[in-house]
């Protein structure tokens, strides 16, 4: 579980986050949603420690993330996996080497143990014939899968995904969503996903936080989305005229 309290972040005179408090639960897919410029990416980067917050607290279970020294931070990061929007696979390494990289860097496992773990993770994301290929030789969807495999190879307790569906067709996006959801439940991971994909919201939104102009505008589950009378949420979810028509039809409205 990750708990944030009164997180604020400013860049110069611009306040991007205005005191956000929220809890991301373990074993659930926690979604941060919002329009472009709402502060989602800044929020995610603060959560993983790439940006320091201007003020506020972050707790990884009972550990105060902000107060950690370098060694403690490194130890905690062993428990963190992250899937980047562009996958961030190392171009000079094969698929197998990319997934093996954290094991090589941080474990004293034998070659066989590493091979087994790499093959398990690649198998888990449905990629067992691409070990020797380079990232440039595989599709965007496959790159996302490799990114997921690399992010789970050290058995993380916390998993962060930045726009996991961007650039993917709806069907592949759904497969990636389900994969993240399954891995989260199987391993009781605290997964935080930054997205503005409505399919993701409605499919895997166990715990949703809507950011609007740097503030937490709404939070709840996917089942509560349709019943909510929060205007900002409704405007965001049913942004297109097509979806608005669908909602009105479902509700028997004109």
């Amino acid at each position: 579980m990750i708990r944030i309290e009164h997180i604020k972040k400013s860049f110069g005179d611009v306040q991007v986050l205005k005191g956000i408090s929220h809890t991301f639960e373990a074993g659930k897919t926690n979604l941060i949603i919002g329009k472009s410029g709402a502060g989602k990416t800044v929020m995610l980067k603060i959560l993983v420690g790439l940006f320091p917050p201007s003020s506020g607290s972050i707790f990884y279970d009972d550990t105060d993330f902000i107060g950690l020294d370098k060694k403690q931070l490194r130890d905690l990061r062993m428990k963190v996996g992250m899937l980047f929007q562009g996958s961030a696979l190392f171009d000079s390494m094969t698929v197998e080497e990319n997934v093996r990289f954290p094991l090589d860097m941080f474990t004293a496992q034998t070659k066989k143990e590493k091979d087994d773990r790499v093959n398990y993770c690649l198998d888990r994301v449905g990629l067992n014939n691409a070990n020797k290929k380079y990232p440039s030789e595989i599709s965007g969807g496959m790159q996302k899968r490799v990114g997921i495999a690399r992010s789970i190879v050290l058995n993380p307790t916390y998993l962060f995904c930045d726009e996991p569906n961007s650039g993917l067709d709806p069907k592949t996006a759904l497969v990636i969503d389900e994969l993240i959801k399954d891995i989260t439940v199987e391993n009781n991971i605290t997964t935080v996903i930054n997205t503005h994909d409505m399919n993701s919201v409605m499919e895997i939104g166990d715990n949703i936080a809507l950011l609007h102009l740097g503030e937490l505008a709404w939070s709840g589950t996917k089942d509560e989305v349709l019943d909510s009378d929060n205007d900002i949420l409704q405007d965001f979810i049913f942004a297109s005229p097509f979806l608005k028509r669908l909602r009105n039809k479902a509700m028997g409205l004109k």
Binding site: V48, L73, R74, R77, M82, A88, F90, P102, F106
Partner: peptide
């Protein structure tokens, strides 16, 4: 630019 450095930072490198 391709977030490789961020990825390594998050791994604890």
């Amino acid at each position: 630019q391709k977030e490789h450095i961020d990825a390594m930072e998050i791994m604890g490198i």
